[in-house]
């Protein structure tokens, strides 16, 4: 009986510890100061319906609209609206890079409207990406479309 009580106590203690334990997110690598030509913090304005979908079959990039909050490198200023192509946007950024897209990464796990992202960007898009593109803003934006090299949670 004593033995059963001890085991019960141990199980309860372990359960309590498990309840108290919070996973510590892996520490992100420092944000590189020389990746791409533009570094901004920007707010994801929206995720249009159909812009991000799970598709194992073919890789694609999707274009998302951001509003710049601050700019560390490049000629953007707060309030500017920019369009950014994200490769295989249904994947966490840390798992999205491959031979086709090259070095794509970051700590963002999914794209949620209103989130602020710390972005390293390159342009023009054609110099960095040859592949399928979903553009829900087709015909609504002119000028530079950026290629997201790194997308961290801000």
């Amino acid at each position: 009986m004593k033995r059963i009580g001890f085991i019960l106590l141990a199980v309860l203690a372990l359960a309590g510890l498990a309840w108290l334990w919070k996973p510590v997110p892996p520490k992100a690598a420092p944000f590189p100061a020389d990746l791409g030509s533009v570094e901004v913090v920007a707010k994801l304005v929206e995720v249009p319906p159909g812009a991000v979908f799970h598709r194992e079959l073919y890789h694609y990039a999707t274009i998302l609209r951001y509003e710049v909050v601050s700019c560390a490198r490049g000629n953007l200023k707060p309030g500017d609206v920019i369009h950014v192509a994200h490769y295989d946007p249904w994947k966490p950024r840390a798992e999205a890079g491959d031979a086709r897209a090259g070095q794509v990464g970051g700590t963002v796990r999914s794209f949620v409207a209103g989130d602020r992202h710390h972005l390293a960007l390159a342009a023009p898009l054609d110099d960095h990406y040859m592949g399928g593109l979903v553009d829900k803003y087709f015909g609504q934006h002119a000028g530079v479309t950026y290629w997201a090299l790194r997308t961290d949670v801000d």
């Binding site: 073919y58 694609y60 990039a61 054609d126 040859m130 592949g131 399928g132 593109l133 979903v134 553009d135 087709f138 015909g139």
Partner: peptide, 28 residues
């Protein structure tokens, strides 16, 4: 290349090409 990204084929008369493009709203 203006969004063309694979499988270009030069036309029989040499005046044009067709290929797969991401420049027209859908990716393929």
């Amino acid at each position: 290349r203006g969004g063309f990204y694979q499988q270009p084929t030069w036309s029989p008369d040499g005046k044009a090409l067709v290929g797969v493009s991401n420049g027209f709203n859908t990716g393929w």
